[in-house]
């Protein structure tokens, strides 16, 4: 199919500014969601290092744990937790779009599907917390 434009050389090509994600709230929130992965990855690296300390002896493990109690690391974990919650909630919402649940041929409303997922997530977290609290203190 031939385009009906007169002179391709005369086309104006607008460039996307590097700050495009600051133009709209939804773009900004999208970028936050992308950024959240960096913090979650960071948290996982710290966790893996912490696990690795187990084999390095009691002193090394205690030193590592002491380091994590410093204000900087507590702040990092606070921020990572906020991003992890944001990521998880938006993830559940996107799941309702990607894999909608059909009940009697009708799609379940997305908010309901998201709420059910978050409810299940909270329930599982609660069970893990209860099991953890029930562990003997020496474990």
């Amino acid at each position: 199919m031939m385009a009906t434009r007169p002179d391709p050389a005369g086309l104006y090509h607008p460039a996307m500014p590097a700050t495009w994600w600051l133009r709209k709230r939804s773009y900004f929130l999208f970028m936050l969601r992308e950024l959240s992965s960096v913090f979650i990855a960071g948290f996982l690296v710290v966790l893996l290092l912490q696990i690795a300390q187990i084999s390095s002896g009691e002193d090394a493990r205690a030193a590592f744990s002491a380091m994590l109690r410093s204000p900087g690391w507590i702040l990092f974990h606070g921020v990572a937790l906020a991003f992890a919650v944001y990521h998880s909630v938006t993830w559940f919402y996107t799941t309702s779009i990607v894999m909608p649940l059909r009940v009697r041929g009708r799609e379940l409303p997305r908010w309901l599907f998201t709420a059910l997922n978050i409810g299940a997530w909270a329930g599982v977290s609660l069970v893990i917390l209860i099991l953890y609290l029930a562990l003997p203190a020496s474990a």
């Binding site: 709209k24 939804s26 773009y27 999208f30 992308e34 996107t94 779009i97 990607v98 894999m99 909608p100």
Partner: peptide, 26 residues
């Protein structure tokens, strides 16, 4: 597609292209 999702927000016919793209991925 990185699932920004704005395509579905602005669509005047509620086509929901963002959902279509994610479902094709699956």
């Amino acid at each position: 597609c990185t699932f920004v999702g704005e395509c579905s927000v602005v669509c005047p016919k509620h086509v929901d292209p963002a959902a279509a793209i994610q479902r094709v991925k699956v």
